[in-house]
């Protein structure tokens, strides 16, 4: 009987891990695109917040989750456009601009939320789980994998699609070349800036989607700073994943597992360690990840550097 309980616990854990990993999966795959093109966006935290807020606001107004998701993507991309203009066209330092956008994202979303929504205290309708026929009835596996909402399922599709685009299309090849050897791309007659713009838009659009999932697929409310550092954890996920979309999917799942473990163990009264230790788990694991995976063999060689035509 104890084994049964453990299996149930495990199934719930894995299911929760996938859900909690979903925002990380979207944002980290997006950041893989961006970094492959040589653009390091540390403004993802702010971008995800904007996505979360836009998603919430749109769903609040229309009552529609799909429209909310679209608004999240659009909000993320709009924010990304600012980042792109400053880092690609103006060629400002990517870290400085990213830090500014984090402040801006945090400030704007909190300002608008307090101005328009905080007093209403109402939540929104969120995406409901879709039970896959037959598969969801499989003991344990059904609970773990086949009782999620559509946004969670779509992460698999996004990961596969991103991998195909990045490694199997000429667009992807050029995109990667832009991050490794922009001059070659330039000489070949392709527009480096245009590719970087494209990569940043894909990246921030997905980050916006990841943020929107937090309000539309997970909590039913916007909370100031709802991303709680996920935008930064994503940066570590991308390093761990060696700049691969499929890798980003699985590494995000691992981090989702840390989140899920933290929440489920917190609920267990008998636990001996203080809950703060569990709370700190994702952050500590991020640091350990970076230390264990030292050496930047796979990093795009022009990561973080603006391209100057000469």
């Amino acid at each position: 009987m104890d084994d049964m309980m453990f299996l149930t616990f495990l199934a719930t854990l894995v299911g929760a891990a996938w859900r909690l990993a979903t925002p990380l999966i979207f944002a980290s795959i997006g950041e893989v695109f961006s970094e492959r093109a040589g653009v390091l966006n540390i403004g993802l935290e702010g971008t995800m917040l904007v996505g979360a807020f836009c998603g919430f606001a749109a769903a609040f107004a229309t009552g529609s989750v799909p429209l909310g998701l679209l608004a999240g993507i659009a909000g993320g991309m709009l924010f990304g456009l600012v980042f792109a203009v400053f880092t690609i066209t103006i060629k400002a330092d990517q870290i400085v601009v990213g830090a500014a956008l984090n402040l801006l994202g945090m400030g704007l979303t909190a300002f608008l939320f307090r101005t328009y929504y905080v007093s209403t205290g109402k939540g929104i309708e969120i995406a409901q789980p879709v039970l896959i026929p037959f598969l969801s009835d499989i003991p344990f596996l059904g609970e773990a994998f086949f009782r999620q909402n559509l946004i969670v399922y779509s992460t698999v599709l996004v990961a596969v699609l991103a991998s195909l685009v990045l490694f199997r299309t000429s667009f992807g090849l050029t995109l990667r070349a832009v991050g490794e050897h922009p001059k070659a791309v330039d000489v070949a007659g392709r527009n480096v800036a245009a590719y970087r713009y494209g990569a940043v838009m894909v990246g921030t659009g997905l980050a916006g989607l990841g943020g929107a999932f937090l309000t539309l697929g997970h909590s039913n409310q916007f909370v100031e700073g709802i991303t709680s550092g996920r935008g930064f954890i994503v940066l570590a996920v991308v390093v761990f994943a060696r700049w691969s979309p499929i890798g980003a999917f699985f590494v995000s799942l691992l981090f989702g597992l840390f989140y899920a473990l933290q929440l489920m163990l917190q609920a267990q009264a008998s636990i001996i360690v203080p809950y703060q230790v569990l709370q700190a788990l994702p952050y500590i694991m991020t640091i350990i990840t970076l230390v264990v995976l030292r050496g930047k063999g796979a990093a795009p060689s022009k990561l973080g550097q603006p391209y100057e035509m000469r």
Partner: peptide
Amino acid sequence: VLVLVIQGIVI
């Protein structure tokens, strides 16, 4: 939180 927006724009 308006102050955060102003900080971001200053940078």
